[in-house]
Nucleic acid binder design. Structure first.
Length: 554
RNA sequence: GCCAUCAUAGUCUAGCGGCUAGGACGUCAGCCUCUCACGCUGAAGACCGGAGUUCGAUUCUCCGUGGUGGUACCA
């Protein structure tokens, strides 16, 4: 077969050949050990948590090696493409702290870097030049078969194979077409897909060293995989070869669902004589679904698969990042405990420490990571972050925060900045509910009357009336507390717990009961942070007003 | 079906031939305490099964079993 002739027949009018692209692409000039990684999502929807998980690995790998982490848009599946998805993906990467330092930036015109276009649909001439070369090398052939691309048809075909116990991949029939037959087909205007002419032997194995999985023996590829679809658009494997070669990628990080097709990718690189890529095949994040089955986090079924979900819930972005790093390198939490204030960038992230299991997403753990992180923030930062969240998701609450800035900061300061800080905030969306009683705008006055049934109304009244006329917020906590106890004793409570326990019937209650009455009357809750701190923030007048409200309405 | 891959408590994991199998989250109990949160102490809870190798297997090998992935002109 005259491959040169075949190549010209298949790709007659190309502006440039492969060598042109190879020669005109600049060599990357990087420090020793620097790695080039890439995040390459397809714009088929919002950014999936699994994508970000991969992106984080890419980002950290490049960051740790002073390398490059670029973004490429893999828009080769027009059927599934969703308008604006590329922009969302880029924006999400930026907000989650994994901003690419090269490549696609939300739309084709604003990309930066010397290796563009970074959008695959803009690279068709390049793919065709490489395709032509492969034909010349005698390693690719046109396939004129008409196969349905409908997913159901494909599944039907597969179940047919399954019934026939059809395990050996037969070579594609079109590989044996003669030049004359091909010429005839092309001249009659028939469309063709370009396939790899596989030379693999399924009895032989290749040794690969995956950066996550370690050394593996994999079977040689024997499939004549499709490289270019009949519409001329490349399939992932081929775009991967061309782009990652040209763009100088050094490590390909991808989900382990790619591992089975690795041998075909290797055959492709070998066919061109290009150096093979280094790969890191990572586990996939799963969840336990309602039927008790473990499965991949699904775009359609699981809202938490969308990275925007965590933004809406008000989880700080570092929470999500650190939770994921935890899943990646389990010694991260030990490091975090020893370095509570350090930036996660300082952690010694390693691909080789990634566990081989598919981890299950755990909200309990996420919450724990979150509250620990937030507990270390300053009150000002908590305030700022809450406000930023509220301005996007709850405008009324945002207004409340804005008009009560000093009060809010004071509130967030309670039991913060100390050795064992309060850890009650997990995300920003819960803050309003947690502290609504502190603000006139959000206080539900009815709750101030929700005393525990064990207190009779007269006891409540007696205690609050007595307290109202005598309390002072001028001293310190213990002075205030002494005052509370004095009032309590005066109306028949016992402030000595031993005595109380010995003879509870003799008293109206103990110190805890007295505090409970006061707490409910002021906040409407049986549980709050340190009451004295709250009273001081509310101020004497407001405290008196609330007591009056209770006395008048009980 | 075939191929690949994984397998330690409810979850995330440490372990890399000899350990009372370690830690974290969650759960429960107690302490602290004016409540909650924090903190402290403690409890329950795991090596998927069977062979083999070995003086000795959670660890190595094989066979099962289970989960996951692949088997597309999707990525």
């Amino acid at each position: 077969m005259d491959y040169k002739k075949l190549a010209n027949l298949l790709y007659p009018n190309l502006e440039h050949d492969m060598e042109y692209y190879l020669e005109t692409t600049p060599k990357r000039n990087l420090p020793a050990g620097a790695q080039v990684t890439r995040i390459a999502p397809s714009p088929t929807g919002y950014l999936h948590l699994g994508h970000f998980y991969g992106a984080l690995i890419d980002y950290l790998t490049a960051y740790k090696s002073n390398g490059v982490y670029y973004m490429r848009l893999e828009d080769t599946d027009q059927k599934r493409e969703i308008e604006g998805a590329g922009q969302i993906a880029y924006d999400m990467l930026c907000t989650y702290g994994a901003k690419p330092n090269e490549g696609y930036r939300g739309d084709y015109n604003s990309e930066i870097g010397d290796y563009g276009p970074y959008v695959q649909s803009k690279r068709l001439p390049i793919y065709h030049a490489f395709a032509k070369k492969l034909v010349e090398l005698g390693r690719a052939f046109p396939c004129f078969c008409e196969k349905s691309e409908n997913k159901q048809d494909i599944l039907d075909r597969r179940s047919e194979q399954l019934e026939n116990n059809d395990d050996i991949e037969s070579k594609d029939p079109c590989r044996s077409l003669s030049l004359e037959q091909i010429e005839e087909n092309v001249k009659s205007g028939k469309k063709f897909a370009l396939r790899l002419l596989s030379l693999g032997d399924s009895e032989k194995t290749i040794e690969v060293e995956d950066l996550v999985k370690g050394k593996r023996q994999i079977r040689e590829n024997t499939k004549d995989i499709v490289l270019l679809k009949s519409n001329g658009i490349p399939v992932y494997a081929f775009a991967h070869l061309v782009d990652d070669t040209l763009m100088g990628t050094t490590i390909v990080v991808r989900g382990e669902e790619w591992f089975p097709s690795l041998s075909s990718h290797i055959e492709l690189f070998d066919a061109f004589g290009f150096p093979r890529m280094k790969y890191a095949h990572t586990p996939v994040i799963c969840k336990l679904d309602n039927d008790g089955n473990k499965r991949k986090l699904s775009k359609r079924k699981d809202p938490e698969a969308d990275v925007r979900y965590y933004l809406e819930k008000g989880y700080p972005v570092v929470t999500v990042v650190e939770y994921l790093i935890n899943l990646l390198n389990s010694d991260f939490e030990i490091w975090r405990n020893n370095n509570p204030h350090a930036d996660y960038h300082e952690f010694d992230f390693k691909l080789s420490k990634i566990s081989l299991n598919n981890p299950m997403f755990d909200f309990d753990k996420l919450d724990n990571v979150s509250k620990n992180l937030i507990s270390l923030w300053t009150a000002e930062k908590v305030y700022d972050e809450c406000l930023t969240w509220a301005e996007k998701y709850d405008l009324e609450w945002a207004n409340t925060l804005k008009t009560n800035k000093n009060k809010s900061v004071a509130l967030f300061s309670v039991e913060r900045g100390i050795e064992r800080p309060r850890k009650d905030i997990v995300n920003f969306s819960m803050v309003k509910d947690l502290y609504s009683y502190m603000f006139e705008e959000t206080l539900n006055k009815n709750t101030l009357l929700s005393f525990n049934e064990k207190f009779d109304k007269n006891t409540v009244k007696d205690f609050l009336s007595a307290y109202k006329t005598s309390f002072s917020l001028d001293g310190d906590n213990s002075a205030w507390f002494t005052g509370v106890k004095a009032v309590a004793e005066q109306i028949g409570f016992c402030t000595n717990n031993k005595e109380y326990k010995a003879n509870p019937e003799a008293y109206k209650g103990n110190t805890a009961d007295a505090c409970s009455i006061l707490r409910v009357a002021i906040t409407g809750r049986e549980q709050t942070p340190d009451l004295f701190s709250l009273l001081k923030i509310l101020g004497k007048t407001e405290v008196q007003n609330r007591i009056d409200y209770v006395l008048n309405n009980i």
